[in-house]
Protein backbone atom coordinates (compact mmCIF):
# COMPACT_ATOMS: atom_id res chain seq x y z
CA UNK A 1 0.00 0.00 0.00
CA UNK A 2 1.27 3.36 -0.93
CA UNK A 3 1.20 6.01 1.77
CA UNK A 4 1.51 9.64 1.10
CA UNK A 5 4.08 11.57 3.04
CA UNK A 6 1.31 13.40 4.85
CA UNK A 7 -0.35 10.17 5.88
CA UNK A 8 2.91 8.68 7.09
CA UNK A 9 3.46 11.70 9.28
CA UNK A 10 0.08 11.21 10.86
CA UNK A 11 0.82 7.61 11.60
CA UNK A 12 4.09 8.52 13.23
CA UNK A 13 2.53 11.27 15.26
CA UNK A 14 -0.23 9.02 16.56
CA UNK A 15 2.21 6.23 17.33
CA UNK A 16 4.18 8.58 19.50
CA UNK A 17 1.07 9.93 21.19
CA UNK A 18 -0.57 6.59 21.67
CA UNK A 19 1.55 5.12 24.44
CA UNK A 20 1.53 8.14 26.73
CA UNK A 21 -2.14 8.55 25.91
CA UNK A 22 -2.97 5.01 27.01
CA UNK A 23 -0.87 5.49 30.10
CA UNK A 24 -2.59 8.77 30.87
CA UNK A 25 -6.02 7.25 30.36
CA UNK A 26 -5.23 4.30 32.60
CA UNK A 27 -3.45 6.19 35.36
CA UNK A 28 -5.20 9.55 35.50
CA UNK A 29 -8.48 9.66 33.62
CA UNK A 30 -9.70 6.17 34.46
CA UNK A 31 -9.37 6.45 38.23
CA UNK A 32 -10.84 9.96 38.14
CA UNK A 33 -13.97 8.65 36.46
CA UNK A 34 -13.98 5.67 38.80
CA UNK A 35 -14.06 8.10 41.74
CA UNK A 36 -17.45 9.36 40.50
CA UNK A 37 -18.72 5.80 40.63
CA UNK A 38 -17.25 5.20 44.09
CA UNK A 39 -18.79 8.42 45.39
CA UNK A 40 -22.25 6.93 44.90
CA UNK A 41 -21.51 3.99 47.19
CA UNK A 42 -20.81 3.22 50.79
CA UNK A 43 -17.40 2.01 49.83
CA UNK A 44 -15.09 0.24 52.18
CA UNK A 45 -12.47 -1.65 50.19
CA UNK A 46 -12.27 -4.39 52.78
CA UNK A 47 -15.97 -4.96 53.28
CA UNK A 48 -17.76 -7.55 51.20
CA UNK A 49 -20.71 -5.28 50.54
CA UNK A 50 -20.36 -1.90 48.87
CA UNK A 51 -23.96 -0.81 48.71
CA UNK A 52 -25.15 1.87 46.30
CA UNK A 53 -26.32 4.85 48.32
CA UNK A 54 -27.14 7.38 45.62
CA UNK A 55 -26.30 10.91 46.68
CA UNK A 56 -26.11 10.13 50.41
CA UNK A 57 -22.40 10.89 50.54
CA UNK A 58 -23.03 14.33 49.10
CA UNK A 59 -25.86 15.01 51.53
CA UNK A 60 -23.61 14.00 54.40
CA UNK A 61 -21.25 16.90 53.66
CA UNK A 62 -23.95 19.38 54.52
CA UNK A 63 -23.85 18.50 58.21
CA UNK A 64 -20.17 17.74 58.46
CA UNK A 65 -18.49 20.55 60.39
CA UNK A 66 -15.00 19.38 59.55
CA UNK A 67 -15.80 19.39 55.85
CA UNK A 68 -16.92 23.01 56.01
CA UNK A 69 -13.92 23.91 58.08
CA UNK A 70 -11.64 22.31 55.50
CA UNK A 71 -13.52 24.15 52.74
CA UNK A 72 -13.10 27.47 54.53
CA UNK A 73 -9.41 26.82 55.20
CA UNK A 74 -8.77 25.77 51.62
CA UNK A 75 -10.25 29.03 50.37
CA UNK A 76 -8.16 30.96 52.86
CA UNK A 77 -5.07 29.27 51.43
CA UNK A 78 -6.17 30.30 47.93
CA UNK A 79 -7.31 33.83 48.66
CA UNK A 80 -4.41 34.78 50.90
CA UNK A 81 -1.73 32.67 49.28
CA UNK A 82 -2.18 33.00 45.55
CA UNK A 83 -2.20 36.84 45.21
CA UNK A 84 0.62 37.39 47.68
CA UNK A 85 2.82 34.80 46.03
CA UNK A 86 2.16 36.42 42.63
CA UNK A 87 3.05 39.90 43.86
CA UNK A 88 6.21 38.76 45.61
CA UNK A 89 7.43 36.61 42.76
CA UNK A 90 6.74 39.34 40.19
CA UNK A 91 8.67 41.83 42.32
CA UNK A 92 11.60 39.45 42.63
CA UNK A 93 11.48 38.63 38.92
CA UNK A 94 11.56 42.33 38.00
CA UNK A 95 14.56 42.78 40.26
CA UNK A 96 16.36 39.74 38.90
CA UNK A 97 15.76 40.92 35.36
CA UNK A 98 17.67 44.11 36.10
CA UNK A 99 20.69 42.22 37.36
CA UNK A 100 23.60 41.73 35.06
CA UNK A 101 25.99 39.87 37.34
CA UNK A 102 25.58 36.56 39.14
CA UNK A 103 22.20 36.14 37.46
CA UNK A 104 22.49 32.36 37.48
CA UNK A 105 23.37 32.32 41.15
CA UNK A 106 20.29 34.27 42.15
CA UNK A 107 18.03 32.21 39.97
CA UNK A 108 19.34 29.04 41.59
CA UNK A 109 18.95 30.56 45.01
CA UNK A 110 15.26 31.28 44.47
CA UNK A 111 14.62 27.99 42.71
CA UNK A 112 16.21 25.67 45.25
CA UNK A 113 13.22 25.60 47.64
CA UNK A 114 10.99 24.55 44.78
CA UNK A 115 13.01 21.45 44.00
CA UNK A 116 13.46 20.47 47.64
CA UNK A 117 11.13 17.87 49.08
CA UNK A 118 8.16 19.59 50.66
CA UNK A 119 8.14 17.13 53.53
CA UNK A 120 11.77 17.90 54.36
CA UNK A 121 11.20 21.63 54.06
CA UNK A 122 8.07 21.32 56.18
CA UNK A 123 9.96 19.60 58.95
CA UNK A 124 12.74 22.18 58.95
CA UNK A 125 10.19 24.97 59.18
CA UNK A 126 8.42 23.09 61.93
CA UNK A 127 11.64 23.27 63.93
CA UNK A 128 12.00 26.94 63.20
CA UNK A 129 8.41 27.52 64.37
CA UNK A 130 9.01 25.71 67.68
CA UNK A 131 8.40 27.60 70.93
CA UNK A 132 12.18 27.78 71.40
CA UNK A 133 12.91 27.81 67.67
CA UNK A 134 14.60 30.29 65.36
CA UNK A 135 11.58 32.47 64.61
CA UNK A 136 10.82 33.02 68.27
CA UNK A 137 14.48 33.86 68.86
CA UNK A 138 14.25 36.50 66.15
CA UNK A 139 11.03 37.88 67.60
CA UNK A 140 12.82 38.00 70.94
CA UNK A 141 15.50 40.31 69.54
CA UNK A 142 12.78 42.86 68.83
CA UNK A 143 11.29 42.42 72.25
CA UNK A 144 8.27 40.55 70.94
CA UNK A 145 7.05 37.73 73.15
CA UNK A 146 7.02 34.17 71.81
CA UNK A 147 4.32 33.23 69.34
CA UNK A 148 2.73 29.81 69.33
CA UNK A 149 2.85 29.74 65.50
CA UNK A 150 1.78 26.17 64.62
CA UNK A 151 0.50 25.57 68.14
CA UNK A 152 -2.43 27.98 68.09
CA UNK A 153 -5.57 27.90 65.96
CA UNK A 154 -5.13 31.64 65.39
CA UNK A 155 -1.71 31.50 63.78
CA UNK A 156 -1.24 27.95 62.51
CA UNK A 157 -2.82 28.46 59.10
CA UNK A 158 -0.79 31.61 58.45
CA UNK A 159 2.39 29.84 59.52
CA UNK A 160 1.82 27.07 57.00
CA UNK A 161 0.81 29.60 54.37
CA UNK A 162 4.08 31.52 54.70
CA UNK A 163 6.05 28.37 54.00
CA UNK A 164 3.81 27.54 51.05
CA UNK A 165 4.32 30.96 49.47
CA UNK A 166 8.07 30.82 50.05
CA UNK A 167 8.30 27.34 48.63
CA UNK A 168 6.40 28.15 45.45
CA UNK A 169 8.20 31.41 44.65
CA UNK A 170 11.00 29.82 42.63
CA UNK A 171 8.66 28.33 40.07
CA UNK A 172 6.66 31.53 39.63
CA UNK A 173 9.79 33.67 39.36
CA UNK A 174 11.18 31.51 36.57
CA UNK A 175 7.92 31.70 34.66
CA UNK A 176 7.72 35.47 35.20
CA UNK A 177 11.31 35.90 34.01
CA UNK A 178 10.50 33.98 30.84
CA UNK A 179 7.45 36.19 30.36
CA UNK A 180 9.43 39.36 30.96
CA UNK A 181 12.15 38.32 28.54
CA UNK A 182 9.59 37.88 25.81
CA UNK A 183 8.48 41.51 25.99
CA UNK A 184 10.36 43.29 23.22
CA UNK A 185 12.71 45.88 24.66
CA UNK A 186 11.76 48.33 21.90
CA UNK A 187 8.34 48.91 23.49
CA UNK A 188 9.99 50.11 26.65
CA UNK A 189 12.49 52.24 24.74
CA UNK A 190 9.74 53.84 22.69
CA UNK A 191 7.69 54.60 25.80
CA UNK A 192 10.71 56.03 27.54
CA UNK A 193 11.36 58.40 24.62
CA UNK A 194 7.72 59.47 24.84
CA UNK A 195 8.37 60.35 28.49
CA UNK A 196 6.48 57.53 30.22
CA UNK A 197 7.42 57.00 33.85
CA UNK A 198 8.56 53.67 35.23
CA UNK A 199 5.17 53.01 36.77
CA UNK A 200 3.38 53.95 33.56
CA UNK A 201 5.56 51.56 31.62
CA UNK A 202 4.90 48.84 34.19
CA UNK A 203 1.13 49.21 34.06
CA UNK A 204 0.92 50.06 30.38
CA UNK A 205 3.40 47.65 28.88
CA UNK A 206 4.65 45.03 31.29
CA UNK A 207 1.36 43.98 32.84
CA UNK A 208 -0.69 43.75 29.64
CA UNK A 209 2.04 41.88 27.81
CA UNK A 210 2.50 39.55 30.77
CA UNK A 211 -1.15 38.61 30.57
CA UNK A 212 -0.58 35.08 29.21
CA UNK A 213 2.01 34.47 31.92
CA UNK A 214 -0.31 35.85 34.60
CA UNK A 215 -3.22 33.74 33.41
CA UNK A 216 -1.06 30.64 33.49
CA UNK A 217 0.30 31.39 36.96
CA UNK A 218 -3.09 32.30 38.39
CA UNK A 219 -4.74 29.20 37.03
CA UNK A 220 -1.99 26.83 38.16
CA UNK A 221 -1.58 28.75 41.42
CA UNK A 222 -5.25 28.47 42.32
CA UNK A 223 -5.24 24.77 41.50
CA UNK A 224 -2.13 24.23 43.60
CA UNK A 225 -3.54 26.08 46.57
CA UNK A 226 -6.85 24.26 46.27
CA UNK A 227 -4.94 20.99 46.47
CA UNK A 228 -2.65 21.96 49.35
CA UNK A 229 -1.84 18.85 51.39
CA UNK A 230 1.77 17.87 52.00
CA UNK A 231 2.89 20.78 54.12
CA UNK A 232 -0.19 20.52 56.35
CA UNK A 233 0.39 16.83 56.85
CA UNK A 234 4.06 17.48 57.67
CA UNK A 235 3.65 20.57 59.83
CA UNK A 236 0.30 20.64 61.61
CA UNK A 237 0.09 19.27 65.12
CA UNK A 238 -0.17 15.48 64.97
CA UNK A 239 -0.26 15.78 61.17
CA UNK A 240 -4.02 15.91 61.19
CA UNK A 241 -4.67 19.52 60.24
CA UNK A 242 -4.81 20.73 63.82
CA UNK A 243 -4.88 22.33 66.26
CA UNK A 244 -8.65 21.96 66.28
CA UNK A 245 -8.82 21.53 62.51
CA UNK A 246 -7.57 25.08 62.02
CA UNK A 247 -5.24 24.09 59.18
CA UNK A 248 -7.03 21.11 57.63
CA UNK A 249 -7.58 21.35 53.86
CA UNK A 250 -10.06 19.50 51.70
CA UNK A 251 -7.43 17.18 50.29
CA UNK A 252 -6.07 16.32 53.72
CA UNK A 253 -9.61 15.60 54.92
CA UNK A 254 -10.21 13.41 51.87
CA UNK A 255 -7.01 11.53 52.65
CA UNK A 256 -8.01 11.02 56.26
CA UNK A 257 -11.47 9.76 55.40
CA UNK A 258 -10.21 7.43 52.68
CA UNK A 259 -7.07 6.03 54.24
CA UNK A 260 -6.83 6.75 57.93
CA UNK A 261 -10.25 5.74 59.07
CA UNK A 262 -11.26 2.24 59.92
CA UNK A 263 -13.61 1.37 58.39
CA UNK A 264 -12.37 3.43 55.44
CA UNK A 265 -14.89 5.93 54.15
CA UNK A 266 -13.81 5.72 50.54
CA UNK A 267 -17.25 6.64 49.20
CA UNK A 268 -17.47 9.79 51.24
CA UNK A 269 -13.89 10.72 50.37
CA UNK A 270 -14.62 10.23 46.68
CA UNK A 271 -17.70 12.41 46.95
CA UNK A 272 -15.53 15.19 48.36
CA UNK A 273 -13.04 14.81 45.53
CA UNK A 274 -15.90 15.11 43.08
CA UNK A 275 -16.90 18.38 44.73
CA UNK A 276 -13.30 19.57 44.64
CA UNK A 277 -13.03 18.58 40.98
CA UNK A 278 -16.17 20.46 40.04
CA UNK A 279 -14.94 23.47 41.97
CA UNK A 280 -11.59 23.49 40.21
CA UNK A 281 -13.23 22.96 36.84
CA UNK A 282 -15.65 25.84 37.34
CA UNK A 283 -13.00 28.21 38.59
CA UNK A 284 -10.56 27.37 35.83
CA UNK A 285 -13.15 27.92 33.11
CA UNK A 286 -14.18 31.18 34.75
CA UNK A 287 -10.59 32.36 35.04
CA UNK A 288 -9.76 31.51 31.45
CA UNK A 289 -12.86 33.36 30.27
CA UNK A 290 -12.43 36.46 32.42
CA UNK A 291 -8.66 36.83 32.47
CA UNK A 292 -7.96 36.10 28.82
CA UNK A 293 -10.68 38.42 27.59
CA UNK A 294 -9.56 41.34 25.39
CA UNK A 295 -6.36 39.57 24.71
CA UNK A 296 -5.86 38.77 21.07
CA UNK A 297 -2.41 37.31 21.41
CA UNK A 298 -3.62 33.75 21.79
Amino acid sequence: MHLTLERRRWIWAYTFILIPLLFFLAIRIGPAIYAFWVSLHKWDPIAIDRPFVGLDNFRKMKDDDVFWKSMRNTWLYVILGMPSSLVISLAVALGLQKLTRYVGFYRVLYFVPYVTSLVAVGWVWRWMYMPNGLFNDVLGWFGIGPSKFLGSPDTALMSILVLTIWQGLGFQIIIFLAGLESIPIVYHEAAEIDGASGWQRFTGITIPLLNPTLVFLIVTGVINYLQVFTQIRAMSSAGTGGPLNSTISIVLYVYQQAFQQLPAKMGYASAMTVVLFLMILAITILQLKVLSRNNNEY
Binding site: G151, S152, T240, G242, L244, Q261, L262
Partner: peptide, 20 residues
Amino acid sequence: VNEADSRQSVIDAFDQVTLN
Protein backbone atom coordinates in the same frame (compact mmCIF):
# COMPACT_ATOMS: atom_id res chain seq x y z
CA VAL B 1 -13.81 1.08 67.05
CA ASN B 2 -12.21 4.04 65.31
CA GLU B 3 -8.71 4.51 66.59
CA ALA B 4 -7.93 7.66 64.59
CA ASP B 5 -11.06 9.48 65.74
CA SER B 6 -10.76 8.35 69.36
CA ARG B 7 -7.30 9.82 69.49
CA GLN B 8 -8.25 13.00 67.66
CA SER B 9 -11.26 13.60 69.90
CA VAL B 10 -9.12 13.54 73.03
CA ILE B 11 -6.45 15.75 71.43
CA ASP B 12 -9.20 18.21 70.47
CA ALA B 13 -10.56 18.21 74.02
CA PHE B 14 -7.17 19.21 75.39
CA ASP B 15 -6.76 21.87 72.69
CA GLN B 16 -10.24 23.23 73.40
CA VAL B 17 -9.34 23.72 77.05
CA THR B 18 -5.75 24.89 76.74
CA LEU B 19 -6.07 26.99 73.56
CA ASN B 20 -9.69 28.05 73.41
